[in-house]
Simulated scan of single mutants.
Amino acid sequence: MKIQRTTYLSLGTNQGDKLENLQNAIHLIDESIGGVQKISAIYKSPSWGFEGNEFFNICISVSTDQLPATLLESLLAIEKELGRTRTNQKGYQNRNIDIDILLFEDEIIFSKTLTVPHSKMLERKFVLLPLVEIAPNTIHPIEKNQLHVCLQNCSDTSEVLKITQRLERPIQITEKYNYIAIEGNIGAGKTSLANLLSDTFNAKLVLERFADNPFLPKFYEDKERYAFPLEMSFLADRYQQLSDDLAQFDLFKNFIISDYYIFKSLIFAQVTLPEDEYLLYRKMFNLIYKEIPKPDLYVYLYQNTDRLLENIKKRGRTYEQNIESEYLEKIHDGYKSFINTQDGLNLLIIDVSEMDFVNTPADYNFIINKIKNHPPNKSGN
């Protein structure tokens, strides 16, 4: 599990469309650093230490797993992406965006590149006013006073005014969904993604217990003989597991990620069973399907067949090594048919054929942001 810690950031701008500058910075911070938990009102203030346009200032709290040094690098990258150019000129300057780390939990840091708490924060009313708004009782780790007391003791007499415009806080995945099911073909990476998401969001993880199924190796050796007992055992096991694991959320984990959904039983059965056995199987499935909680979001990972075969070979399960491309294509067609007939399913299709989201953070962040920006309670891709 990744450890999430709270950092407080100050954002300021005095060039261009200041509201847009702040909003763009908030979204980039949310996408690349961590969930934005709180956003203060916007405070207008005169330029500090130089003659320039007036500033718009805010403070935000962010939950992040990044260490302070990495966080600083990420913030500098965001400033650069938003068009800020740092120069060697001494003194303060106009800027379209400025992002400072004010506090990082209760840590005290003095390094060549970073000082936390920010060395000037207690001298600046345009920093303390928005910070106290979102964290009045937080303790300054050096002063040992609550921030609202620090504000009362601030000697800054400059005029700082709250304006009426408000900024939008990005909605977090855990606020939109209670239950996300990850699905895909054999070797698509659904278990890997489910593990990563569970780790990132401290979610309850529900993994399919395929390794415990005694019929699976036999099925790959003799499909005709073992197809029906395999599919029936999978159906019974999936029903039992989902019934148990989804009956109630963990006390401290109200977010569930699973690497399968019960409907996959029907998809695989349609591919593996002859028509008469499938019709019998379908009757059993329909009875069970009504009793299973439906996911708030169904994520389907698409991978092309060549990539699937490569992944299957790489993970080295002996009983999977003789899987043929035709079989994988039939399974994909089954999922496609299912997807096209489920109007009420909140569906997100992500093509991961050219991604390595396990080893490439940018690919993983892309998937997170696709999920985060997907509209809830609507179908579509």
Rank of each mutant, 00 (worst) to 15 (best):
D259I: 10
L151H: 08
I349N: 14
Y43L: 04
I139V: 12
Q23H: 11
H140R: 08
K336R: 14
Q23Y: 09
F110G: 10
V206N: 00
Y92M: 04
L76C: 01
I323K: 03
A211K: 12
T174H: 03
S258L: 08
Y179R: 02
L75R: 01
N346S: 15
P117T: 06
S233V: 10
L28Y: 02
P46K: 14
D237I: 06
D30E: 10
L75A: 02
F366C: 13
C59K: 04
L348V: 01
R124Y: 08
E54R: 05
K144Q: 15
L280I: 15
S61G: 07
I97W: 00
K112R: 13
S119Q: 12
I267D: 10
N322Q: 13
F263S: 07
E231V: 06
F252M: 00
I39F: 03
Y289D: 14
L75W: 01
T174M: 03
P217M: 08
K313H: 15
T87C: 01
N153Y: 08
I97H: 00
K2F: 04
F255G: 00
T70G: 13
Y43R: 05
A362R: 11
P361W: 07
P229F: 01
L196S: 04
T318I: 13
T7K: 02
I288T: 13
L197G: 00
N185P: 06
R307A: 12
E183M: 11
H118I: 07
I371W: 03
P293R: 01
E123M: 04
A269G: 15
I163K: 03
K378P: 08
N254T: 11
Q152D: 15
Q37S: 15
E320K: 06
Y226E: 10
